[in-house]
Design a protein around this nucleic acid. Structure first.
Length: 524
RNA sequence: GGGGCGGUAGCUCAGCCGGUCAGAGCAGUGGACUCAUAAUCCAUCGGUCACGGGUUCAAGUCCCGUCCGCCCUACCA
């Protein structure tokens, strides 16, 4: 099976201790739209997401809450992360947790293989250790001391001097992969996208790589190092392996070779792990690197990256409760150039909802379905008197599809939506020009009336298919209202490449009343 | 300190290799229309493309400098 026939997309897995915010949701929605689009294009598609549950932070919060780390993780997965996927209507094929047996087994197998092949060596890790926190600190976590500790670097949390501690660690020979990585970036220029991120990564790798410490001795919430159970695996090394553990590496070779390699969708902050460490790990194990690492931008609130400490973090449900999940998906996918940072504001969301969804697409659906109800007894009419104006709609639909496919290939989700939207705009203009409400008054023009409404209904049929990956709920309602569910089968079974083929919605299909797809939202 | 990205109409942003590139959407204004969620359609107002130099026949578009903003600098999408 060729690369074009299959599509495996993976999101980063959520660190369970985080609080879900719209940034997490943004990544998920993007992956979901890409997956749904490919699936409906007839591509053998698999989409994966999940949770990252090991590490000291989780251990500590679990202890603070008086439960075991596993219980703590279980609780967060069920109360926060799986509900997030429902909130934004994600249709993932699998959900992997790093505490699952299927994952831990793979981590150990993988480590053992690298160890046996000489890619893992013993070394000594030297770091700043805060006794209060009971953990090693990065330089960022330190501040200048005051008072009796003036002149020293101290822990930002405890304000006390840190100790320099040494610990035996196992190291992954990352440094030996520098040239191989550079060769990869060179031979596969779109391995890292967008280009700005690629440049960043390339120059980072050129500066040289250190071996990576991949084990910890100071706590025990993690996957045991198979040949030395006094160590647990470094969380990132553990977490990255989810992308292959979930598809059966080491246990189901057939499925593994069917799915791998993956497109990795990541926030640009963790691109380094995915575009440097991860491919190196795979190379060490003799596996193909990911197909692509695509780094999307940040959601900015008030011009700055969202953050909890600045209280700009927004929970996805705050948005979906007001506007619905379709609007959430549409807004972030259409308003932001995928790959670049984008501003979020309630005002912008609200304005676009009103202008584009309620007044644009939603109202178009309303007026067409209402006219078929009113002038044609709720039966889709036949196009018997076709003019250039009607053919033009057909052409716009074909162009919209072609443009969307081109854009999607390049992961330009916003451009794909814009291309589809040309059909929304064209249909609204078409109705205004054709004035079916006037044509309806003259019995002699019945053929034209039917043709106009048939064309409009057919256009809506195409829109329902093309927009279903972005707005599964509204398009489903429209699909049923058009009588398409009964006449053509389920919306999800419709093939995107066929979406612009005219004349699919048969004359005689029974339409049903359609409530507002995107009801007006009164100002709060 | 080093690195990245950005500064284009009131707002959010397109503008790839320099030559209809001064644009889109929204907001504003005027008009048309009534099938529809007072919605749609047409027209229109609006910018010395951050600032200063330079290269060029020609520069938002390349080069240098300055100012401003954001981000990264090994474990936050």
């Amino acid at each position: 099976m060729g690369a074009a026939d299959r599509f495996y997309i993976a999101t980063p897995i959520f660190y369970v201790n985080d609080v879900p915010h719209i940034g997490h949701a943004y990544t998920e929605v993007a992956a979901d739209v890409l997956a749904r689009w490919h699936r409906q294009s007839g591509v053998d598609t698999w989409s994966l997401t999940g949770t990252d549950e090991h590490g000291q932070k989780i251990l500590r919060t679990a202890v603070a809450n008086g439960v075991t780390p596993q219980e703590w993780a279980d609780k967060l997965v069920e109360s926060a992360w799986k509900p997030l996927l429902d909130t934004i209507d994600i249709a993932n094929d699998d959900f992997i947790r790093t505490t699952e047996q299927r994952h831990e087994t793979v981590v150990q197998q993988f480590l053992q293989k690298l160890y046996d092949d000489g890619f893992i060596t013993e070394g000594e890790y030297e770091g700043y250790y805060c006794v209060g926190c009971e953990e090693y600190k990065q330089n960022d976590d330190l501040v200048d001391g005051v008072g009796e500790f003036a002149g020293q670097r101290v822990c930002a949390i405890h304000g006390r001097p840190i100790e320099v501690l040494k610990e035996k660690n196992y190291f992954f020979a990352l440094s030996t992969f520098q040239q191989k990585l550079l060769d990869l970036y060179e031979s596969q220029p779109d391995f890292i996208q967008p280009a700005s991120l690629r440049n960043e990564i390339v120059s980072f790798v050129r500066r040289g790589l250190d071996d990576l410490s991949i084990s910890r001795q100071s706590f025990d919430w993690g996957v045991r190092i198979p040949w030395d159970d006094s160590h647990v695996t470094y969380v990132w090394f553990d977490a990255l392996l989810n992308y292959i553990s979930a598809i059966g590496w080491g246990s189901d070779d057939e499925n593994f070779s069917r799915r791998w390699p993956a497109v990795q969708l990541v926030g640009k902050d963790i691109a380094r792990f995915h575009a440097v460490i991860w491919p190196a790990m795979l190379m060490a194990a003799g596996l193909q690197p990911p197909a692509k690492v695509f780094g999307h931008g940040w959601l900015l609130v008030g011009g700055e990256k969202m953050s909890k400490s600045k209280l700009t973090g927004i929970a996805p449900h705050q948005i979906t409760e007001v506007f619905g999940s379709d609007a959430f998906r549409y807004y972030f996918m259409s308003a932001i150039s995928f790959g670049q940072d984008g501003s979020f504001s309630w005002e912008d969301l609200s304005a676009r909802y009103q202008a584009e969804l309620a007044n644009g697409f939603g109202n178009l659906a309303s007026r067409v379905v209402a006219m078929i109800g009113k002038y044609c007894d709720s039966v889709v009419p036949a196009a018997t008197d076709v003019t250039d104006a009607d053919r033009r709609i057909e052409q716009v639909a074909a162009d919209a599809l072609a443009g969307a496919q081109r854009a999607l290939e390049a992961f330009a989700i916003h451009d794909a939506i814009a291309s589809v939207w040309t059909l929304v705009d064209e249909l609204n203009g078409y109705l205004t020009e054709q004035e079916p409400w006037k044509v309806a008054k003259d019995p002699a023009l019945e053929g034209r009336l039917h043709t106009i409404l048939s064309t409009a209904a057919e256009g809506l049929r195409a829109l329902a298919v093309l927009l279903s990956p972005v707005m599964p709920q509204a398009t489903q309602k429209l699909w049923v209202a058009l009588g398409a569910e009964a006449a053509l089968g389920g919306l999800r079974e419709q093939r995107i490449p066929d979406a612009a083929r005219w004349g699919q919605l048969p004359a005689g299909a029974q339409t049903q009343p359609l409530g507002a797809l995107f009801p007006r939202i009164e100002a709060e």
